[in-house]
């Protein structure tokens, strides 16, 4: 089981430890309601399962939502006794660094692996609801297709160009200050939380429209991250051109939900403002230099 230090503010909404014997440390049975689908919009249905949690003494650490899904997979029978199928979901690292297990839990987006059941369902009979993210096409059940996010990262060239015909040598030196800022930005795991919570990021199923659809906070922040890198900065102009265009930074409506839900606490709104400044200056320079 995962021992995670859970400090996102999402968990607090449903947090509430009961003092009775069946509380967070006691053995209990909880209910898990899952929004399932065979593919996007196909056979969408809610199914509810029971999950038995052993008492704290009988288990090794805390239990997360992924463990519940595993238990359901071992015996997929719904509460009304119908035999169902194991629920499909993505997961990788199980320690909140890969971002693949992102889903909507009790109405808010977060990672399932770092979502501890003791916080969300402290009492016998408590309910946890799981939904796939709503801003991406559903592949199956809780598994969504985030390729729009990856394409957007490519559109801002979210990498450092190190391939060449000769050895580029060591990278340039960096001040500790810059390093601190960049380190925080580097922790983005492309999980999609900031996009799911963004009112300006809406579902787009048509791949041909990805180019002009909002790239979202994560991508703006990654563009900033690579623009701050001395070698990465060689592609600054292309990144700013993409962000100045349709689907770029101007699509942001400044609701600042993104920064509130980011599990990595990346200062997304500062990144948005910083790139706003870069794009403004870039366009002014372009206007007067004609290039």
């Amino acid at each position: 089981m995962i021992q995670s230090n859970d400090d996102t503010d999402l968990a607090t909404d449903t947090r509430g430890h009961a003092a009775n014997g069946k509380g967070p440390s006691g053995a209990r049975t909880i209910r898990v309601r899952i929004k399932r689908a065979d593919s996007h919009g196909k056979n969408v249905r809610w199914e509810e399962f029971k999950v038995d949690l052993p008492s704290a003494g009988e288990r090794d650490g805390a239990i997360n939502v992924i463990a519940c899904l595993q238990q359901i997979a071992s015996n997929p029978v719904t509460v009304d006794g119908t035999r169902s199928t194991p629920v499909t979901y993505e997961s990788g690292c199980l320690e909140e660094v890969c971002g693949s297990c992102t889903m909507v839990i009790n109405g808010k987006v977060r990672q399932a692996c770092s979502c501890l059941v003791d916080d969300y369902a402290p009492n016998d009979g408590d309910l946890i609801t799981l939904e796939p993210m709503s801003k991406f096409p559903v592949v199956r059940d809780l598994w969504v297709d985030r390729s729009r996010l990856f394409k957007a990262l490519a559109s801002v060239k979210a990498w450092v160009p190190i391939d060449g015909t000769y050895d580029l040598g060591e990278g340039p030196e960096e001040t500790p200050d810059e390093q601190q800022t960049r380190y925080k930005l580097s922790t983005c795991m492309s999980c999609g939380c900031c996009l799911e919570a963004c009112p300006q990021y809406t579902l787009e199923e048509d791949e041909s429209k990805f180019d002009e659809s909002f790239v979202g906070a994560a991508v703006i922040s990654q563009a900033r991250y690579f623009n701050m890198h001395e070698t990465g900065a060689t592609m600054k102009k292309q990144r700013l051109d993409t962000l100045a265009g349709p689907g770029g930074i101007n699509n942001c409506g400044n609701s600042q939900n993104c920064v509130k839900v980011c599990p990595k606490e990346i200062p997304l709104t500062e990144s948005i403002a910083a790139m706003g400044r870069s794009v403004t200056l870039h366009r002014i320079k372009e206007f007067f230099s004609g290039r």
């Binding site: 109405g107 808010k108 919570a197 009112p199 409506g253 400044n254 609701s255 600042q256 939900n257 509130k260 839900v261």
Partner: peptide, 11 residues
């Protein structure tokens, strides 16, 4: 779903 003050101002 996201009852943040900033989100209310956005709306």
């Amino acid at each position: 779903r996201y009852e943040y003050q900033g989100n209310w101002r956005y709306t």
